[in-house]
Amino acid sequence: MHSGIINPIDLAREGRQSAHLAIPYSIDRSPYYQIRIPIVRLKNGDGPSLLLMAGNHGDEYEGELQLARLIRILEVSKIQGAVTILPMANLPAVMAAKRCSPFDGGNLNRAFPGDPAGPPTARLAHFLESELFPAHDVILDLHSGGTSMAHLACTLIERQADRTRFQRSLDLMRAMGAAHAFIADNGAMAPTSMGAAARAGAIGLSGEFGGGGTVTPDSMAFTAAAIDRLLMTLGIVKETVLSRSVPDRPRSLQLLSLSRHSQGIYAEGRGWFEPAVTLGARVAKGEVAGWYHDLQRLDEVEEELHFAEGGIVISHRLHCDSQAGDCLIQVGEPIEG
């Protein structure tokens, strides 16, 4: 079934193409409205095909800004193979500075494999998984902690049943040069872009490149270097594009796993969270994770929160004001060997 998305890009055509994916979506002020998502395709001869994607969540900016920059400066004559760039995949969310689309509340990274007859986010997910992802060898989906979370800078892959593809994923993830990396184990039907990439027969790469709904010199440099390293490792370019020079890779890569509810601490009610540890800290089971204050009951002593498991602190909530169900802090389990 057709996804209802208009795609003017010819993936077989040589050279540079700049266009918009168009999702028809009737709204009150415009019955024939289209959600127009920018897409750029560069192709120069035979070679690997890479899809670079950001804005899966609208409030994660490192990828959006660096891919916008890459669109402006990457030259067809300097590549071998093909690069497709989606700098603002969930465009309505990007324009609203929100995690999810304001049109349908859709979280694109929980919408795969999508629905060709569904609301806009579901239709986009279906188009990506069934049409765009299968046309690429490698997919890099750039994320960050978003407005509400601080996140340890890291790269990420999904565990693969195919050992050859999994090893290739590991090799490419290592090449991106992060000091920390995740191996997610969400299963074959994961509703994420990485699950979709695997089902489409592509190698899926991702990561958390910053957080807080902002960018920093460090987070932008980390993102630029990761993109450049991937482009060079694949043989698409011979030298850096976004970075003046690629910094030395960390001496080692610490692999992490996040697979159990007990690795996080969640709010049980309304409160104000004060973390006790910083991102990247190694903590032990039972160690103090932070304090939960109740500003509506000033006579109550703040609650001391303790880690149920040891590991490396990978994220914590940035918004002090919290509600029941909010994740306050998480630890990743180090994978040795």
Rank of each mutant, 00 (worst) to 15 (best):
T155V: 11
G264F: 01
A289K: 10
K285C: 11
T164H: 11
A12V: 00
I9G: 06
I314N: 04
G63D: 10
Y292M: 14
H20R: 05
A150Q: 12
V94Q: 07
S49V: 02
G210F: 07
Y25W: 15
L258T: 00
K78S: 15
A225M: 06
T192R: 05
G332V: 00
F127W: 15
L242G: 05
P247M: 04
R251K: 15
A196E: 08
K78H: 11
V76S: 11
A93E: 06
F103D: 00
H151T: 15
G264A: 11
H57T: 10
H306T: 08
E336F: 07
R29C: 02
H319D: 14
E75F: 06
G271H: 00
A226P: 03
G45N: 05
K285M: 04
S206G: 15
H261Y: 11
P120G: 06
K43P: 02
I39H: 10
Q263V: 12
V237Q: 03
L51D: 03
E333R: 15
N56I: 13
D137V: 02
R229S: 13
V288Y: 13
G212L: 01
D326Q: 07
G146C: 04
H57A: 04
D104I: 14
E302H: 13
E268N: 15
L132D: 03
R99K: 04
I139H: 03
P275A: 08
G213K: 07
A196W: 07
I85C: 04
E129R: 06
F166V: 01
L108E: 05
N90E: 03
L21D: 08
T147N: 12
P334G: 05
G332D: 00
G201D: 05
